[in-house]
């Protein structure tokens, strides 16, 4: 099988220095990761902040050595043959501030193209073409320090696509972008991969919509481990026997969501307090279980404001796998 990216029992452990007297601690950012990304695939890594997504990208882009295990990109071992991997890849990170503010958009992009050996004339032609596509053509001669966050991110995205890599890594590419700009970037990414199936793209995100809308396959990661890996549709099919409800209720007033979790037939409950109300996401074994949840709410003097039955999303798959929502995982990590 022709894999663009492959990892075998890949692990990375960080040593965290303690104080003068305390021993250094170990943090497993990646634990025995096994992944196979096919050539031509748009593959997503979905997980909360701190799940190990960026660490995995750093290893795959030859910026970080694995502690154990192996990884291959475009057929080459990232640890043993980094010089063979590097001409074939590129990477863009969300919120990055690379380049030099005193250079214009064109000059910054030209500079990075030269590091890949693209002749000047061809680089300039491609820069114009790509800036046209992302709607930045009128900013060609604007100093990059004068760009807004969104426009700067578009420039970074052009930097990544400029070299037309075999394997492109996008680490949270829409981080900090508004809804409209994110949608445009997603559309551009999808088109780039669809135009030429010899291209491969690995994208990390903690936005469910992004993973669902873009990716051919998704690996859900948490605490350095791959919990599941499949197409978004197949992942959601895991929950097809279950029924999902979204309830908006009056504030729970100290009543823990655990009391609903303990009811027979309730598989998972997540609770998000909002301003003046609460949102409960329920995964139930069947419709009829809802009545016992409603009864428990009535007993606890909790009013239901809105009730909605809905289709499963990747967020629900995550909750099913981890037991908590991504938001809850992220806030507990902090």
């Amino acid at each position: 099988m022709d894999f663009a990216i492959q990892t075998e029992k890949l692990s990375r452990i960080y040593k965290i220095r303690g104080g003068k007297k305390s021993e250094p601690k170990s943090l497993a950012a990646l634990s025995d990761i096994n992944l196979e990304v096919h050539r031509g695939e748009l593959f997503g890594l979905l997980g909360p902040n701190g799940a190990g997504k960026t660490t995995l990208i750093k290893v795959l882009t030859t910026l970080l050595a694995p502690t154990s295990g192996q990884a291959w990109v475009a057929g080459y071992d990232v640890a043993k043959d980094p010089e063979k991997v590097r001409p074939r890849i590129n990477m863009v990170s969300g919120g990055e501030s690379s380049g030099y503010g005193l250079l214009t958009v064109r000059e910054n992009l030209w500079m990075f193209s030269q590091f890949y050996g693209i002749p000047s004339g061809e680089a300039n032609r491609r820069i114009k073409q790509l800036l046209e596509i992302v709607g930045l053509a009128d900013r060609l001669n604007t100093k990059s320090s004068d760009l807004s966050t969104g426009l700067r991110q578009k420039m970074n995205i052009v930097r990544g696509f400029l070299t037309d890599p075999e394997v492109l890594f996008l680490d949270e590419p829409t981080l900090g972008l508004d809804v409209g700009a994110s949608r445009e970037v997603r559309r551009f990414i999808r088109q780039w991969i669809d135009e030429n199936r010899a291209r491969t793209l690995l994208l990390t995100t903690h936005y469910m919509v992004e993973a669902e809308e873009l990716c051919d396959r998704v690996a859900i990661v948490n605490q350095g481990k791959v919990l599941a890996c499949d197409t978004p549709a197949s992942l959601k099919r895991r929950l097809q026997q279950d029924v999902l409800f979204r309830l908006e209720t009056s504030p729970l007033n100290g009543v823990g969501a655990e009391i609903f979790q303990s009811l027979p037939g309730v598989r998972k409950v997540t609770h998000r307090p909002q301003d003046g109300f609460a949102v409960l996401e329920l995964i139930l074994e069947e419709d009829s279980i809802l009545s016992s949840v409603v009864n428990a709410m009535t007993t606890a003097n909790i009013c239901i404001i809105n009730l909605q039955k809905r289709e499963p999303t990747l967020e629900d798959v995550f909750v099913d796998l981890v037991g908590r929502s991504m938001e809850e995982v992220e806030s507990s990590e902090q």
Binding site: I118, A123, I133, F161, T163, F188, E195, N196
Partner: peptide, 18 residues
């Protein structure tokens, strides 16, 4: 409808000096 990013097949990728 976005303009076509690159008409070239993979063999026609930008020439890169080494």
């Amino acid at each position: 409808q976005l303009p076509v990013i690159s008409q070239s097949p993979i063999a026609g990728r930008p020439h890169k000096n080494t």
